[in-house]
Write a protein that binds this DNA or RNA. Sequence first.
DNA 1: CCCTAAAGTGGACCCGAGTTGGGTTAGCGC
DNA 2: GCGCTAACCCAACTCGGGTCCACTTTAGGG
Lengths: 250, 250
Amino acid sequence: MSQAPEEPSEGTADGPSPGSTDDRPGTRRPGGRTARTRTAVLAAVREELVETGFAQVTVEKVARRAGVAKTTVYTRWRDLPGLVVDLLADLSTTRVPLPDTGSLDEDLRLVARRLLELMRAEPEMTMFRAIVATAVHHPEAREALSAFFQQRLATTAELVDRAIERGEVPPGTCRLEVVRTMSGAFYYRMFITGEPLTEAVADRAAAVAAHSARAGLLLAAPIDGKVSDGAGSDGAGGSSGVGGDGAGSA
Amino acid sequence: MSQAPEEPSEGTADGPSPGSTDDRPGTRRPGGRTARTRTAVLAAVREELVETGFAQVTVEKVARRAGVAKTTVYTRWRDLPGLVVDLLADLSTTRVPLPDTGSLDEDLRLVARRLLELMRAEPEMTMFRAIVATAVHHPEAREALSAFFQQRLATTAELVDRAIERGEVPPGTCRLEVVRTMSGAFYYRMFITGEPLTEAVADRAAAVAAHSARAGLLLAAPIDGKVSDGAGSDGAGGSSGVGGDGAGSA
DNA sequence: CCCTAAAGTGGACCCGAGTTGGGTTAGCGC
DNA sequence: GCGCTAACCCAACTCGGGTCCACTTTAGGG
């Protein structure tokens, strides 16, 4: 947990500029009580989200559960979407180990299976569902979720890099696109069509992604001026330097 | 599908059983005023959704805009999600013509391009976005959206049937899965990661789906007792018996 | 054309989420 | 420790969304 907001204020490094920049409460004295409040509130949101579902959650209930005055929540997080955003930032810290079996197919399949497992875990998924719902119609949450996925995708994309090194897939392959192709099937079913997720779905998604990559369908092609890969700088002996636009902003 | 008009009532043909079965208001006298109210309210929801965004929409505003007493809306639609559900049912009636170029690749590409176009149309998309957001945390809306996609997918899947007949793809190919594979990429970017949609994305999605189908990766395999396709046996025409699992559990 | 009850109306009412202002606790620099 | 003030607490208040109920309008069958 922890992972305090720590908004890296631009420019002015020395003194706190007097009143001009709006310092969010919780940034100046992040110590003891402040931190304690944050964890309590975030935990309360989690529980409330899981127990009663997103539609029923309200700032007041969260505050009550956290044992905190509701004004505190309002001043620090503004509103419910603000809380969800912070919750998501908290989620970003969790790391998942990547498989490395020497085969793209197998690597992807394992990742798919793990994703399936994750999506079947009720408490976590309920919460994530709420986050997605918020992001659909709230710009700030949308931004946060977007960043979350950028980072998560980039991490997983490493196994594509290895496949490229092995010569399993064409060198110009877009590392992110492979992962997107796979995970898209999951989220599509989960959140859009509402169809069930099975092992078959997972395996199929992995197979499709791997096969498409191998067939050279997932190249980082700069069609119409828009590069869809954000990785760039592969670092290994990649022959063709298909640079990306570097969209990976934190 | 709840308050869709013309629910074929079962059994009791002669007298209206007094109060036992819950007839939704609007079913017994669907004529003049009732119909007028419905269209007015639905239009109001549409406009409200597009103008102010989902988070701001409230039953009261909708009623006011429609020039209707808010109690009317409450008694007929129950709440906001109910309205959204009805709105979605209304959307289901729109038909889109399918391409038939003689090539699966090209057919899919055209469908993808049209989908792209559709998703770029701001007013409609804003509304659809709201529907998805509702579905994420509201079971009834989830059900409706699921049904909507079932029908929509089944319709589009006809071009896969033609590809099977032509021998372009293996005969056991799951008609729905091909379409899902393609459209998944769209919705994933649109609603989950929030990444931009481009022509490149559309073409790539179509290529991946077509290629995977041809490679036999999208067979309707009854793995672990769960068949992922619902149709398959009948030729064209049928298309309604997709039913099957739907969103059921989750 | 008339009658019945289904559908819609209007306003009073309730309730709770969000706001405001003044007072209290405690982080943190000195 | 001391003091300053950020951060938090409390209670009262506002305001608008949702509910209830008696009343009016109008489908639709006879």
